[in-house]
Design a protein around this nucleic acid. Structure first.
Length: 913
RNA sequence: AGACGCGUAGCUCAGGGGUAGAGCGCCACGUUGACAUCGUGGAGGUCGGCGGUUCGAAACCGCCCGCGUCUACCA
């Protein structure tokens, strides 16, 4: 092994070997239990971000864990075509050459996107390889692969034929920049400071005026009614009369509807059925005219007065306010908080807009999907996410699935010249299915499907559905889905609905929902905030200059840019160092506690890089000291028995935590055992055996074998979390095969040895007592000390006598003397339980310091004694608390009292300073 | 307006009816033959507040305060 731990070198070495040897493939062992995960397919042209790194790491841990247990394990990998995002990226690329997609035309443009996919599509999969993801690359799929596209068609056609997909004209969420409809879940509602404009609407043939309040004055051009509450006494006499709509001079009715809140504003509401979802419904109820006043790109159209035509919606807003004011019809303006609908991709303000779109009648699919979760067929982890799921599913609205984009699955529908719709998977199929003559002219629907439509089929379309393949039989339903809460609606719910509908089974049994990775201040990481951390930079390291360059790239506003530069320089004055992927993976695991977002803490990452270093050096030590192991006799020391016993507890703990998705607790158990027990204590306890010529060959051999055996087990236990370093060391310690294909450790009850654990615990307490004296008294660690002991019982005495070597080595002792009741010389004192420890002063101990130290200890003990006495003096406590608890308290009191007495006595015995 | 979550050491977080934990940071000492990416010792918290249940609450319940997220919205 190299002298120093060099993670980057190790990490680049092993992945190609694993992949080439086919270790990522499912074993195909039909007798073994199946374990499968489908990856949430990342955007094919995307880049790996912290969220991917996090989720992929957790998936890989589970996959490697199950694979090592001998399960027939599949991690299905692939990428998503990500309709809007990908189209936007390519359009932006074209724009830099001053080309629009319309210049190219649909076919050429789509070809360009495919080219772009070929060009950049390998990027994210390369990054996944760096992560160590043991996905089965031979089964890699893309949502627009031919067979997955066939599955999409089949699903669409079947749903259409069953009446569960329909086409209709209604209000949709329209993105006037991207020029496409989007679904409800793609709209973000951002709270914004806006205004409430109060407009005066004159009543026809009357002096009266109704005042309506609106946040969007420009929509008044499309008003077709004013509504009041039917019981509102103020307006009773006006119901049925008409308003002369200012600026347009159209006459619109005053109607009554109990949707109106009398308390809000003036109690009069302007109704614009073509541009507001609530107004649309009211329009339906009252058969109101619908006047669309916007062009697809949200300019005022020809249905409005000429003056406003062609104006952008926000310019029109300003102009209309001016015109109302000029006409004396602007009553007042109030500041008002409102939610503005924003498209989650483009960021444009969404318009409710009247268009023809395709919808899924979703309620019939939602019912069974709700039941599946209620019945526990699908389990959310943590469980509270099922509430979020129910809440949405119980109020689910029909799903708009058509998009006016060019990149995506083309909807398999054709129209004849009369606009009649035919659905089948090709024009030929349409003609056959609907028995159309060759003379009937057909043209295909130009819309594509929402990306999430194909994503919803992912768990079974990737496994060959609709064919009844072996993959489906073995791996479907899948075992666990790991994903973020942000796509429960987008993706998880739809997979459950489609899975149940088309396979009759749930797509997965457990859904593990991860928190969001935020920056150290709890802020969402985003390009515009300039606080993004790239997982690869954490692994490879990056200079401050490069990091600043990366974070400010594309930032336009100088004050934002300056802040990003300042923040970055402050947080990373020296850039980011090399940490290695194993450290990053372990960090992800350690932060993966359930049900909360994660503030990414660089300190943790550094700590776990150090952990890798620790393992490296410990392994080096083991190898150096176990070169001459024999098959001969092995005699196990107390320490050997102890560490083997503790190892069993660790195995049990790690398995338990992995089984219940507590990656944080699993990593903690490993960290604590490896560092605090194996390295800090066991390696040190081995030294007096290995380095002492007086120790028998059998004992040395026993310790050597134990050192190796424990390391061997540690590596296998740790491998799912830190695959690279464990593989590298395994090559030295284990067999020549890869650690990937070794068995995951199983607890061996025979090695649990409570006596050894207790005995080592005693030894540790003595050593800690002496070290405490050394530390507090500033006695150099190199200075050997004499130890006087008293008050030990026979059993303890026996243990200590047989293990003096440990004490002498770890506490750096010279003589060990038993007092047997004799008075100790003037000493510093410590207690190890009932045992009194004396370190003779003999000129090296500062009496004043020792006095102070003892007084401090005595103070603590006094408090403890008091506390115990109070408890035990309470009759209801002794009567009602469990006897075991009371007994424990009694023991505690006895021990504290005895300790107090001993230390007080010792304080008295100190020579006066 | 509902729903969910969070508030524990300076920071990032575990824990959970029976004497408050980890990592990082801090202080002191130390190059003892795996490791200074280290070792040893130490300091540091009335577990957001107030009530209640209980022999016992940081933990369970209620209310309040603060923070966050989601859903639905009054134009």
């Amino acid at each position: 092994m190299d002298d120093t731990y060099n993670p980057l070198e190790i990490e680049k070495k092993w992945y190609p070997i694993w992949e080439q040897k086919g270790y990522f493939k499912a074993s195909g062992d039909a007798a073994a239990p199946s374990y499968s995960i489908v990856i949430p397919p990342p955007n094919v042209t995307g880049r790996l971000h912290m969220g991917h790194g996090f989720q992929h790491t957790l998936m890989d841990v589970l996959i490697r864990y199950h694979r090592m247990q001998g399960d027939n394990t599949l991690w299905q990998v692939g990428t998503d075509h990500a309709g809007i995002s990908t189209q936007m990226v390519v359009e932006r690329l074209l724009a830099s050459d001053n080309i629009s997609r319309h210049d190219l035309g649909r076919q050429k443009f789509v070809e360009r996107v495919w080219d772009w996919k070929e060009e950049s599509g390998g990027h994210i999969t390369e990054q996944m390889r760096r992560l160590g993801n043991s996905t089965d690359w031979e089964r890699e799929r893309f949502t627009m692969d031919a067979d997955l596209t066939d599955a999409v068609s089949k699903v669409f056609i079947q749903l259409y034929d069953e009446g569960l997909i329909y086409r209709g004209k209604r209000l949709v969420n329209w993105d006037p920049v991207l020029l496409t409809a989007i679904s409800d879940v793609e709209v973000l509602n951002e709270e914004t400071d806006g205004f409430l404009w109060h407009l005066r609407y004159p009543v026809k043939n009357s002096d009266e005026v109704l005042i309506v309040a609106t946040t969007r004055p420009e929509t008044m051009l499309g008003d077709t009614a004013v509504a009041v509450h039917p019981d509102d006494e103020r307006y009773q006499h006006l119901i049925g009369q008409h308003i002369v709509l200012p600026l347009t001079e159209r006459e619109i009715p005053i109607i009554a509807d109990d949707y109106v809140d009398q308390e809000f504003g003036t109690g009069c509401v302007k109704i614009t059925p073509a541009h507001d979802f609530n107004d649309y419904e009211m329009g339906q109820r009252h058969q109101l005219e619908m006047i669309n006043i916007l062009t697809p790109d949200a300019k005022i159209n020809e249905n409005a007065p000429v003056k406003y035509q062609g104006m952008d919606r926000f310019d029109a807003r300003k102009q209309i306010i001016i015109d109302f004011e000029t006409a004396g019809l602007l009553d007042k303006i109030e500041p008002h908080k409102l939610k503005v609908p924003i498209g989650d991709r483009g960021g444009a303000v969404i318009e409710p807009y009247l268009t023809d779109q395709w919808y899924v009648d979703i309620k019939p699919l939602a019912g069974p999907a709700i039941e599946a979760v209620e019945q526990g067929k699908v389990r959310f982890i943590p469980d509270n996410w099922s509430k979020t799921y129910f809440q949405w599913m119980n109020n689910i609205q029909d799903w708009c699935i058509s998009r006016q984009l060019w990149w995506g699955h083309r909807i398999p529908a054709w129209y004849d010249d009369q606009g009649k719709v035919y659905v089948a998977d090709s024009e030929q199929a349409v003609r056959e299915k609907y028995d159309l003559a060759a003379s009937v002219n057909l043209h295909q629907e130009t819309d594509v499907l929402d990306t999430w439509f194909s994503a919803g089929l992912w768990p079974f379309s990737t496994m060959g559905w609709p064919e009844n393949t072996d993959e489906l039989k073995q791996f479907y339903p899948t075992s666990t889905l790991i994903t973020g809460f942000d796509i429960i609606f987008f993706w998880v719910a739809r997979m459950i609905m489609f899975g149940l509908k088309f396979t009759g089974e749930v797509p997965f049994k457990d859904v593990y929902i991860t928190g969001l990775i935020r920056d150290e201040h709890g802020q969402k990481m985003s390009k515009t905030k300039g606080n993004v951390l790239d997982p690869i930079d954490l692994v490879d390291g990056i200079s401050l200059d490069d990091l600043v360059e990366k974070r400010t790239y594309g930032l336009m506003q100088t004050h934002v840019k300056d802040k990003v530069i300042a923040d970055t320089k402050k947080q990373f004055p020296d850039g980011i160092g090399v940490h290695g992927m194993d450290a990053l993976r372990f960090t992800y695991c350690s932060l993966a506690s359930t049900g909360r977002d994660i503030r990414f803490d660089l300190g943790r990452l550094e700590g776990y890089r150090n952990f890798g270093n620790k393992i490296w050096n410990a392994s080096k030590f083991v190898l150096m000291n176990t070169e001459e192991l024999t098959d001969g006799q092995q005699c196990l020391s107390l320490a050997d028995q102890w560490i083997l016993s503790r190892l069993q507890n660790t195995i049990t703990e790690v398995r338990k935590q992995l089984d219940q998705y507590r990656f944080d607790l699993a990593s903690q158990a490993l960290y604590e055992f490896i560092w605090n027990e194996y390295c800090d204590w066991y390696l040190e306890l081995c030294k007096p055996i290995l380095y002492n010529d007086a120790v028998s060959a059998a004992e040395k051999n026993g310790t050597g074998h134990t050192l190796r055996a424990v390391l061997n087990t540690i590596l296998r236990l740790l491998h799912p979390l830190m695959p690279f370093i464990t593989e590298e060391i395994w090559q030295e310690v284990g067999t020549s095969d890869s650690i990937m294909v070794q068995a995951y450790p199983v607890t061996d009850e025979n090695l649990i040895n409570e006596n050894a654990v207790q005995a080592i615990h005693l030894i540790q307490k003595i050593i800690l007592g002496i070290r405490n004296i050394r530390g507090e008294m500033n006695i150099p660690p190199s200075k050997p000390l004499s130890l006087y002991l008293d008050q030990a019982n026979e059993e303890q005495k026996n243990i200590i006598q047989h293990n003096e070597n440990f004490l002498k080595a770890l506490a750096k002792l010279g003589d060990i003397v038993w007092l047997d009741g004799e008075k100790a010389p003037a000493s510093a004192t410590a207690l190890a339980g009932n045992i009194e420890l004396f370190i003779p002063l003999a000129g090296l101990i500062d009496v004043a310091a020792e006095t102070e130290r003892l007084e401090r200890e005595i103070g603590k003990l006094n408090k403890e004694v008091l506390k115990s006495q109070q408890k035990l003096g309470n009759e209801s406590y002794t009567a009602k608390a469990p006897p075991a608890v009371v007994e424990k308290e009694r023991q505690r009191l006895t021990e504290s009292e005895s300790a107090l007495e001993k230390l007080t006595e010792q304080l008295k015995n100190l020579p006066s300073a």
